[in-house]
Nucleic acid binder design. Structure first.
Lengths: 229, 229
DNA sequence: CATGGCCTGATTTGATCATATTCTGATGGA
DNA sequence: TCCATCAGAATATGATCAAATCAGGCCATG
């Protein structure tokens, strides 16, 4: 009977706050630190430094670091040295290729499962994204842009490809923030509306193509910013 | 002075024996256990079981498991349960798509750097692979086939795409062994010679296409074996 | 009286920490 | 310039604590 059980679910502000194991919490916090550029690329990462900064024991920190290394978000430089990797032009080419392949395919797959309310959800995110751009809210733009793509991944119900795609965000995310600080929000690409329109009209190939273009344009902004920086 | 230290290097057969950190050694051994199907898909993996089996402390085992979970080689099923994931038809579709995209692209990129001696190295591996097929040596076939692809990845000098591609091997490797036990080695695909010929004649697109076909055919063998099993 | 669900406690397993050990990189003297 | 010493950080262990699973018995019910 559903009378008891499942009480006081409301406590905790962020969804990350629940009584998850410490290593999981440390992992997420550290990942966000990296993703939001609060640990700059090239900067070394020490275990003991993190135990203080995150107020956690060594074992959880250690596991979080290993995990992020495996995901490519951190770089293990042989001699016990760990740092946030810096994005090179060559790496960017690889990332563009992989993201094109993954995001377009996932968009195509999402079409098979998508419902009208799913599309509305995407439009909501995109509308919020427009507001963030108009307001010059860079952090909001980055967050919502990621959320838009991430939502599509979820709809595709393709766990492996989603894993791969999310993993790529960890690799260029740290540089995104640096880059956007220089570029501003005025001419950021947003082909999301084209993708949504294609989904609505029942054109998965068109949607996939639009998303692919969105990815390319976004990554090209990064490239120019990197080369001029 | 090299007089002392570094004595009796000869013990231990594999090259994995060197004085690497324990967590690294544990990681590799565990990865091989998974890759060679010695831990069957679906079978649970416990930390304490591995500390005994691999004769290591808890911390290194723990780190190795986290790493393999992050790489998708192990599956963390909510409540502390860790196991080798089982390959479904849907997962196989995703893997085929990703491998097609990655292997073909990496072959193309390898062409830019490839030398005559590199090609000879590939031919050597492929010749050994033929011998393994003729001898019905399944394990040898699997090992050499992986080595062939892996060599190409190395030549491409694309660290991110290589990471992704190697990660995929961890996902279907465990099932490969099971599958090949049923199929035998007679009609295993080997389009490597076409790829090598294309590389030799200076045709990167042809080489990429050949490798893509090789991947597809190999994965299709897995698919039929999975569906009939 | 037999059966099935539920509860409880024992055991297994995971999570975390404090600590000992080893290794790296740097510094300073020969 | 090179080597030895030294500080500091990472690696690794085992102990301890907490959580979850499983088994077996109890009670209610048919």
């Amino acid at each position: 009977m559903p009378a008891d059980g499942d009480m006081h679910r409301s406590e905790g502000a962020q969804p990350e706050d629940a009584s998850l194991p410490t290593h999981e919490r440390v992992y997420r916090r550290l990942r966000n630190l990296i993703l939001w550029g609060e640990i700059a690329p090239g900067q070394p990462v020490t275990i003991q430094g993190l135990t203080e900064r995150l107020d956690a024991g060594m074992t959880p920190v250690r596991e979080a670091i290993r995990r992020l290394i495996a995901e490519g978000a951190l770089d293990f430089q042989g001699n016990r040295r760990v740092s946030v990797p810096e994005l090179t032009a060559a790496h960017l080419d690889e990332l563009i290729y992989a993201r094109k392949a993954l995001d377009s395919r996932l968009t195509e797959m999402a079409f098979s499962h998508i419902t009208a309310s799913d599309i509305e959800g995407l439009e909501e995110i995109d509308a919020a994204l427009d507001r963030a751009i108009a307001a010059g809210d860079i952090r909001g733009y980055l967050d919502l842009n990621h959320r838009f793509h991430s939502r599509i991944y979820t709809l595709a119900r393709a766990s492996i490809l989603t894993d791969l795609a999310e993993g790529l965000w960890l690799r260029f995310g740290p540089s995104l923030r640096v880059v956007c600080g220089r570029v501003g929000t005025q001419n950021l690409p947003d082909l999301h509306k084209q993708a949504i329109a294609a989904l609505r009209r029942g054109d998965p190939t068109g949607a996939a193509h639009a998303m692919e273009q969105d990815v390319v344009q976004g990554m090209e902004v990064v490239r120019t910013a990197l080369s001029t920086g």
